[in-house]
Design a protein around this nucleic acid. Structure first.
Lengths: 314, 314
DNA sequence: GAGTAGGCCGATCATTTGCTCTATCCAAAT
DNA sequence: ATTTGGATAGAGCAAATGATCGGCCTACTC
């Protein structure tokens, strides 16, 4: 039985959220009843639950075939020789990134063991995935390591602060102005070290970029719209970690690639489980190329995208 | 050959539940919006969600340390040399069995791999655990095997029907009237076969019986209240699979044990992961003895019980 | 030391949700 | 063909929930 309610309200917030979530979702109690048990106001319970859902502490898991009920998952695995796949139902009016981010987070949390190392790349879906996973890292002692430079900029916003989470980031921009500088940075001991570490991770998480002037790469100022146009003419259909490839997944020979500080595609392929999170009609070509180039072997996407991928491939 | 319509509509419903659950819990849509998307009535969505939660298809997982936030889990693991532990918050007015059943189901679903074999014992908590896991079995192709006779009687009520779920049950009562008959049954090829299979499972799930005249063993008519009284005088504090043990976990030398058709304690200990689900003040002694006798190495219990176990042990 | 910004808390109220009761439909037995 | 039982869907309603707002406290700034 619960002791003095006052004492309980002093407890860690995570603890409170956990208790509230248990009583709410597993016991089916009302927020009022929980409020009484925990010695807080009803509205507080409502907010605790909201926070738990937002932060990813409370996760919904669907226990059906392969963990999501859509047949397409199996089809994707078979068609592209993947290790696993997740397909979320399409909801036309909702932004795709947070939705597949959640699915990717769920998949990774299921697969990662304590003390594992997770290598992360670039992109919106990657960022949201990390946000949902953030509360789990410190507790299961999972470390993350970046696959590219330029990650530090946005990682701060995801709730992964400082070294207590064992985050090893490459402390360079994603792209630098000269080939020489890029090479100097790559052989700089600390950078070298992180790059090597990334290549030895057991799990990776990457986004897939489309070749559009609206791409995240452009929005963040790493590429100009003119360059994108040029790459497109050279046959580029998408990029992974800043490396552009054609429809067959062959990495193009671009100047840009010599200016990038990131794990090379060949090393990325050495990571045994690489999950790519991407969805949307404008990414179809990019995803197809990525899959053909075997840059990832786990795909997290949405229903419409999966349908289209299978149609094009078949 | 044509499809089984029941199976088809089942799949259909699973799909609907999955979609509804995604939109509801992950996308934060209202039931009305989901109803419009799926083309069903709002109330139908409400019922789909309810069904999903009830059946265990929708699981709310709490992602904090070890999957439940209580420090006691770690303390239990350390104090008793366990592999893992789950502690659920106590709710004085709610029956304990379904609550720890849910937690045990969550734990097992996390640990079991596809094609695994799960050996199950006796008891209320075991039953509810199985009910929550039922929808997962066919899809991840997990087989179950019983550790004792007398299981068939109640297994039918949990939704695990027939052989399509790879359920291998010992087709005998738990207890028979003579030593000879018990021995004959044990060496009967099919029974022998199931007993051997159970002993080779990678995971086990058992309940822990208290030595009370209100015990499940008595309620189901396997023991008389008088026998219980006798066992108690002989030093019994609890039972596992129908075998009674004393406070140190030593199996007693009772006539009853020679009349029981069940995997023997020594073989139970050979299963690398045995989860025991039990809670309540009247079970403290039984659980303590069970832990000391190393009959299980994973414990699922509630907060009050954990506190008391640690206090008594420390 | 005063001001101010920001976050936390609680009250009110519209919305959402699920419970209950009734009507309907399908299926099986006669 | 009819009846009957059980399951399923829908309407109305009470309860539960969460969004919005104003107040309070804290902490930081000047």
């Amino acid at each position: 039985m619960y002791q003095d309610p006052a004492e309980l309200s002093d407890l860690d917030e995570t603890e409170q959220i956990t208790r509230a979530a248990w009583h709410y979702y597993n016991d089916g109690l009302t927020q009022n009843q929980i409020a009484d048990m925990l010695g807080v106001s009803r509205i507080k319970v409502s907010r605790l639950l909201e926070k738990g859902r937002q932060s990813g502490l409370i996760e919904l898991r669907i226990n059906s075939s392969y963990g999501g009920c859509l047949i397409q998952q199996k089809e994707l695995v078979e068609a592209f020789g993947l290790v696993d796949a997740r397909v979320v139902p399409t909801a036309p009016d909702l932004p795709a990134a947070p939705r597949i981010g959640r699915a990717a987070a769920s998949l990774l949390m299921q697969k990662l063991d304590p003390n594992d190392l997770l290598a992360i790349g670039w992109g919106e879906a990657t960022t949201t995935t990390l946000r949902y996973m953030a509360p789990v890292f410190p507790q299961s002692n999972i470390s993350i390591v970046s696959l590219t430079g330029g990650v530090s900029a946005y990682i701060g916003t995801t709730g992964l602060y400082g070294p207590q989470n064992n985050a090893h980031l490459i402390p360079t921009p994603l792209r630098v102005s000269s080939e020489d500088l890029a090479e100097m940075l790559r052989v700089e001991p600390y950078v070298r070290n992180v790059l090597d570490m990334a290549a030895t991770a057991r799990f990776g998480l990457i986004g897939v970029g489309a070749v559009t002037s609206a791409a995240t790469l452009v929005r963040y100022g790493y590429c100009s719209a003119a360059e994108i146009e040029l790459f497109k003419r050279r046959g580029a259909v998408g990029d992974v970690l800043g490396y552009f490839y054609d429809a067959d997944g062959e990495i193009l020979d671009l100047d840009l690639h010599r200016h990038v500080v990131a794990v090379r595609p060949d090393d990325l392929r050495k990571i045994p489980n690489v999950a790519a999170a991407a969805a949307g009609p404008h990414k179809i070509d990019a995803i197809l190329g990525m899959l053909r180039g075997k840059l990832a072997n786990i795909l997290v996407t949405d229903e419409d995208t999966a349908t289209e991928l299978l149609r094009r491939h078949g």
